[in-house]
């Protein structure tokens, strides 16, 4: 199979980037997208050029490292699939495949297809946890969790933190990511005591980062490799609204955002 890969090349955030087209002659349909880039990189290295930088690690769709926009769709045309598990059989002989990095102010570009996603860590850092220290846990079955709650929580907990939701959202909003963690923890009885405080802190951090806002468009859930439902955003809003109307002694301070808003 012959393909042309049109890839965004940019040496660093300070330099200008541009698309470069690379014709590929021997693309096996069984290859993954990343393996296709591997093959390209091998030829680039041998011809003394700089290989395309892209992030990857587990290559089985769970670590969340990989991700770029393929033909205008985050992670490419196949639903519920990360770039590493996207096989080339989804393309036709002779296709031109456009590959560009996640585009968002909150995700500054590092090199080629690699961006900095620390802003997502900040949101978790702000309160995406249950504040239990090692050794404080009650027995596993001491607090029962209904099967439905456990399943709903798991649906949201499946988030891999790849940032495709932000990349796909026309507003570059991180609402799906934040909502997923708020839903994961808030649906479980263990997360109940901190539920409102968590929503306040995480939403505050999300707003402090350079993300856009949610307008319920739904592209995020379409691009999400774990197909996390849009409901998690409503859950976030509900917890946030409830929390906002209660008197509080103190409000958590967001940490300095990954990118200062202009």
């Amino acid at each position: 199979m012959k393909l042309t890969l049109k890839i965004w090349r940019q040496k660093s955030s300070n330099e200008k980037g541009a698309f470069v087209s690379y014709p590929m002659d021997n693309v096996d349909p069984e290859m993954s997208m990343l393996e296709c880039l591997d093959v390209l990189n091998e030829t680039l290295i041998l011809s003394g050029e700089i290989p395309v930088a892209f992030e990857h690690d587990c290559r089985e769709g769970i670590c969340g490292s990989c991700g770029f926009v393929i033909n205008g769709v985050a992670h490419g045309p196949e639903r519920g699939t990360t770039a590493c598990q996207l096989t080339m059989r989804h393309f036709k002989d002779g296709d031109e495949v456009t590959i560009e990095p996640w585009r968002a102010e909150a995700f500054p570009l590092i090199k080629d297809l690699v961006v900095n996603r620390r802003a997502l860590d900040h949101i978790i850092e702000a309160g995406g946890y249950i504040s239990v220290s090692t050794g404080q846990a009650p027995g596993g079955n001491d607090i029962l969790v209904g099967k439905e709650s456990a399943e709903e929580s798991m649906d949201a907990a499946a988030c891999i933190g790849c940032g495709a939701c932000v990349a796909a959202c026309p507003n570059a909003s991180a609402a799906l990511f934040t909502g997923a963690k708020i839903t994961h923890l808030g649906t479980l009885p263990q997360g109940e005591p901190e539920r409102e405080r968590r929503a306040l802190s995480m939403v505050a951090q999300m707003n402090a980062e350079a993300f856009g806002n949610c307008t319920s468009i739904g592209e995020c859930t379409g691009a999400c490799p774990k197909e996390i439902p849009l409901d998690v955003i409503a859950n976030m809003n509900r917890d946030y609204i409830c929390a906002s109307f209660k008197r509080r002694e103190e409000l958590p301070t967001p940490v300095a955002p990954a990118v200062q808003r202009a």
């Binding site: 968002a104 102010e105 026309p170 507003n171 570059a172 350079a210 856009g212 808003r261 202009a262």
Partner: peptide, 8 residues
């Protein structure tokens, strides 16, 4: 806000 969030 959204416009600033995706400059490119």
């Amino acid at each position: 806000r959204s416009q600033v969030a995706r400059p490119i």
